[in-house]
């Protein structure tokens, strides 16, 4: 193989990396907030799926992608409030509630999609998607243009989202309160911070961003909903939070790393010359996730009150 081929192969992978990482970035940065406040939302997968479905449905009937996005946002708020009600107010086991969310999310979105869309005779189930933005000159730079300047708006929002999340978490009184509530809720309580309120807010932030991450799947990448289309991205986002050391930048870096494997897998599948069955390649991102988690098993930094309901 000559250099040009290799270069094309690598840039092809990198060009898909950020796009593949985008839903993970949304969900994992959101989940950083939830977990830093002490709540582990194992239901990301379900929330992402319902977010994707509702965004698709709203966009399908209204014809507006922005209304689709708005629908995902509301979905996130509602599911976040519901999750917080169970885990913070009722103090139910967070793992159990999360699992229930995943099962229900998959079942409900699949059922509704089947009964609303598949059983009717729409001529097409496709919706328009967010177009790639084009930048004068920049998009045309060889390789770099492909890698950085040919995405849609939802991808570019992450450029703002991540620094903003980091700023909020580390440079505001709100962020200080979030971190204290997840690490030593009793101390926060004695200083007049409402542990429940903080956790509600953070779970909702996490849920909204996760639902938006789901919306990117239907509004930007595919042009319709498919049953269980998230295929584990919610869980990989959870892993990205851990691998990223519970920080927005870390979770983003981890998401991008997992994004590389998604992209690699897609790229290799597209090459006819490879003899491996494609299922082996599809496994790549998940194997990468497991290896990543094994590599950080001794790392400190998990919020000390993570997963523990607060009782004063």
């Amino acid at each position: 193989m000559d250099v040009a081929v290799i270069l094309a192969f690598v840039s092809g992978i990198l060009a898909a990396t950020w796009r593949m990482a985008t839903p993970l970035i949304y969900a994992s940065v959101g989940e950083v907030f939830a977990e830093r406040s002490g709540v582990i939302n194992l239901g990301l997968e379900g929330i992402m799926l319902v977010g994707a479905f509702n965004a698709y449905t709203a966009a399908f009937y209204s014809g507006s992608l922005w209304l689709g996005l708005l629908a995902a946002l509301f979905t996130g708020v509602l599911l976040g409030l519901l999750f917080a009600f169970f885990t913070v107010t009722i103090k139910a086991n967070q793992i159990v509630v999360g699992t229930a969310f995943n099962l229900a999310g998959s079942g409900i979105s699949g059922f509704l999609f089947e009964s609303i869309f598949l059983k009717s005779n729409y001529s097409s189930l496709g919706i328009p998607t967010f177009n790639d933005l084009s930048f004068p000159f920049l998009t045309k730079i060889p390789y770099l243009g492909d890698i950085l300047f040919h995405y849609n708006i939802l991808v570019y929002i992450t450029v703002l989202l991540v620094p903003l999340a980091s700023f909020v978490l580390y440079k505001t009184a709100f962020g200080l309160a979030v971190r204290s509530v997840g690490a030593h809720p009793k101390a926060a309580d004695t200083m007049g911070i409402s542990v429940s309120r903080m956790r509600y807010i953070c779970v909702v932030i996490g849920s909204v961003l996760t639902a938006l991450g789901g919306a990117t799947l239907t509004l930007a990448f595919a042009n319709q909903f498919v049953e269980d289309m998230t295929s584990g991205r919610g869980f990989i986002a959870l892993a990205a939070v851990v691998f990223g050391g519970w920080t927005p930048w870390g979770a983003t870096a981890a998401s991008l790393l997992f994004g590389v494997f998604y992209a690699l897998q897609l790229r290799v599948q597209a090459m006819n010359s490879v003899l491996l069955p494609y299922q082996f390649l599809q496994v790549l991102p998940y194997v990468a996730t497991v290896l990543a988690l094994i590599s950080v098993r001794h790392r400190a930094g998990s919020p000390k009150a993570l997963g523990v309901p607060y009782r004063s």
């Binding site: 440079k171 505001t172 009184a173 709100f174 200080l176 309160a177 971190r179 204290s180 690490a183 030593h184 009793k186 101390a187 926060a188 004695t190 200083m191 007049g192 911070i193």
Partner: peptide
């Protein structure tokens, strides 16, 4: 003690003192 060890003395002391949107520059 109601102190979070990963935070500084000052951060522990001002917990809950400022409104949420305050920027801690």
């Amino acid at each position: 003690f109601m102190l979070e060890p990963t935070l500084t003395v000052a951060e522990n002391i001002i917990l809950g003192q400022f409104p949420s949107w305050t920027i801690l520059n």
